[in-house]
């Protein structure tokens, strides 16, 4: 089976939109050391996005570059999940989201390493080490916020409640997927829940949100994110930067 462009775009857009949100923290983190750490994570995600977008462009075969795909698509053409696109001005939400995304990516990339698609296997081989560190970072902070003060416990629990409904979308089937997202569900959920429990938090009992990101149906937030991200590039059509 050949890898679909849409599938690679889905993975690329998850990483790109997440990097865009993550980079917001640089100069806003709770401590300087964390500014540096979150910037590192954002840079890893951006690097993954660039490799994946370049590959998606090649699969599409229309000569589109990473920048064409990042800057010249509208929100209905983006394939990322809702988990990554909403604003995240709360550190607890950022950590909850990172725990979910990175755990999912770590299972996904691990599976892709041995896939028959050599390009994707190559990208995944590098990314799998990066996201292992992201999972570790998210886990350490989940433990500290969950089992820190009463305030942090409450805030981390609230963060989990707000992000949990968006977990399910990660496992929604995608046409032309190299690794069936459904096959990752048990392991990903198991790992996340283990951290949640270790952090003295409770696993939220909430209904999944109706995400539609993989089909280009997004929250209102993505349009604003893209407007900001794309405006300069689009203001000067064809320019070199």
């Amino acid at each position: 089976m050949t890898t679909s462009c849409d599938y690679v775009l889905a993975l690329a857009d998850d990483a790109l939109v997440s990097a865009q949100r993550m980079s917001w923290w640089i100069s806003r983190a709770p401590e300087l050391e964390e500014d540096v750490a979150l910037a590192n994570i954002g840079l890893d995600q951006l690097g993954q996005a660039r490799a994946l977008l370049t590959y998606a462009g090649a699969l599409e075969g229309a000569g589109r570059t990473e920048d064409d795909l990042a800057y010249l698509r509208d929100d209905r053409e983006f394939r990322n999940v809702w988990l990554v696109e909403r604003p995240q001005p709360d550190f607890g939400v950022t950590i909850a989201r990172l725990l979910m995304l990175a755990t999912w990516q770590s299972e996904l990339y691990a599976a892709l390493v041995s896939s028959s698609d050599a390009t994707l296997a190559g990208i995944a081989g590098k990314a799998v080490k990066e996201v292992a560190y992201h999972v570790d970072h998210a886990r350490l902070w989940t433990l500290r916020l969950g089992d820190g003060t009463e305030v942090s416990h409450a805030r981390m629990q609230a963060a989990l409640e707000s992000e949990w409904p968006h977990l399910e979308e990660l496992f929604a089937p995608v046409d032309g997927a190299v690794v069936d997202p459904r096959s990752l569900r048990d392991r990903v959920m198991g790992r996340i829940e283990e951290v949640v429990v270790e952090a003295t938090l409770s696993v939220p009992q909430v209904a999944p949100a109706i995400g539609g990101g993989r089909r280009g149906l997004h929250t209102e937030h993505l349009g604003h994110l893209l407007a900001e991200m794309q405006h300069l590039h689009r203001s000067h059509p064809g320019a070199t930067w």
Binding site: E31, L32, E33, V36, A37, N40, D136, H137, L140, R144
Partner: peptide, 20 residues
């Protein structure tokens, strides 16, 4: 040097700050 609440995070912060 750097600041960290505990050894685990100190090690990770050191990785991010001093081995970029």
């Amino acid at each position: 040097s750097l600041h960290a609440p505990d050894a685990e995070l100190a090690l990770r912060n050191a990785r991010d700050v001093y081995t970029r």
